[in-house]
Design a binder for these strands. Sequence first.
DNA 1: CTGCGTCTGTGCGCCAGACAACACACTATA
DNA 2: TATAGTGTGTTGTCTGGCGCACAGACGCAG
Lengths: 268, 268
Amino acid sequence: MCGTELYNKEFFCYALLMYKHNFAEMQSMPCDSDPKSNYLLAAMSDEGLEHLLPDLAAVDMPLGKVVYESDVIFNKVYFPTNCIISMVYVMNNGASAEIAVVGSEGMAGIALFMGGNTTPSRSVVQSAGHAFELKADVLTREFERGGELQHLLLRFTQALITQMSQTAVCNRHHSVDQQLCRWLLLSIDRLDSDNLSMTQELIANMLGVRREGVTEAAGKLQKLGLIHYKRGRIKVLDRPGLEAQVCECYAVVKAEYDRLLKAPFNRQ
Amino acid sequence: MCGTELYNKEFFCYALLMYKHNFAEMQSMPCDSDPKSNYLLAAMSDEGLEHLLPDLAAVDMPLGKVVYESDVIFNKVYFPTNCIISMVYVMNNGASAEIAVVGSEGMAGIALFMGGNTTPSRSVVQSAGHAFELKADVLTREFERGGELQHLLLRFTQALITQMSQTAVCNRHHSVDQQLCRWLLLSIDRLDSDNLSMTQELIANMLGVRREGVTEAAGKLQKLGLIHYKRGRIKVLDRPGLEAQVCECYAVVKAEYDRLLKAPFNRQ
DNA sequence: CTGCGTCTGTGCGCCAGACAACACACTATA
DNA sequence: TATAGTGTGTTGTCTGGCGCACAGACGCAG
């Protein structure tokens, strides 16, 4: 009915293609090895952070890496510094839809401290970079102590819930054009740059729409001079212009992140 | 672009209409005054529940009651026993979309212990009944003690997250027909009966689709003999039949609720 | 610099669902 | 029993997005 086995095939090629894609990025991306580059880690007191430091390991997050497979128990959590992790649900027929994205403002693996240990959705690296990896049992231990880390993580989780909710609303009511704007803005908020490495095909998979739909929407934005597009490289030229195009969903999510996490994104 | 001021007007009439509607229900619905009728309260140890009991108050939840207004700080949480509370986002233009529903398996007001205190969405009573009301500070106090209540609430929150995620996916990929099936099943799972009191108009508001769309979809289901409805009364006649029609989203959500909350819904 | 694989642009037919307008049916109340 | 209010069924038009097919454009590997 919706989606075809085409999606399936593509999704299997996914990781492979993206890895390949990624090698080009590698050398240009310095390893970000300061835990303070992640908002959650930065927001902790020195004392609190000390409990975690011995177990934090800086790791590469190559494009396409499947961080968590759906319904599979995991034993690591990730605090991105300059990568983006995307939570995606993949349907039986292979069609997919992004549920939320996490960048340097948050953490991947909330199901751990929420008590479920798994989720029906898959998490993949949408934009290559680095993250701090932490063993699950260490995080659980610190979470159970209550206090600042617990509060931070729960507030972040609520922000994430808002993002998911708004995704649902946006999927219901807004056009592909508007959703692309929202997606672009959410993405560049979570990166240090205005450049994204994403083919239209992959964006389409994230948004759960046709590739041609993305081509068309991106074409419009390019004509308006808001972005520049070239074979898997997107550069945002006019951020305020994008914000003028986007639906209210973006602003709602942004405001909640700012409110709950005290403005982790300081760029305009 | 999407929605019209019509929606707005309707939404303002909402509470009023629903209250009126509700008076007819009242006498036929016995006050459910056993805290054990709520899964979360029932799952607690006697000892744990004792901390809450003095502050739990059974309250009426009339159809259409706005439990939480968006972005407004609240000081009560609700444990439904036989009502359904719907979390709805209302857009600037008045169009709306349901994000998740909560019934006797859960609690309304999770933003409290998550640390945000408010959400951008509104919570409305979608099906009249009763709930146990608890003062916010009592819940916060008990939550902060850690232990079983905290774990229960967090697991429930994760189940709710799954519901929201799947709503997003369903909104993206599935037809109105399928979504109506999902909505009906989620609703009757949370009630003791196969009867719902909802006009097609209101269902349309929840799903964020046109009333005519619901008319059409409901007509199909009726022709198939799966439901019977008549001016605001819907009776599910063939539950397995509905389950055969519904998209995978329902099963995913159901499975997660069963897994995380140990099968709070024991009906078939 | 040539060729091939990948990415992007475009055109077409199709359909679900939005929008609009209205007829009819049920129910409560006077 | 008449009437108004509310809920439901129907019809026709229009548009956004899907599926499909293919042409062109880019860029890397040989």
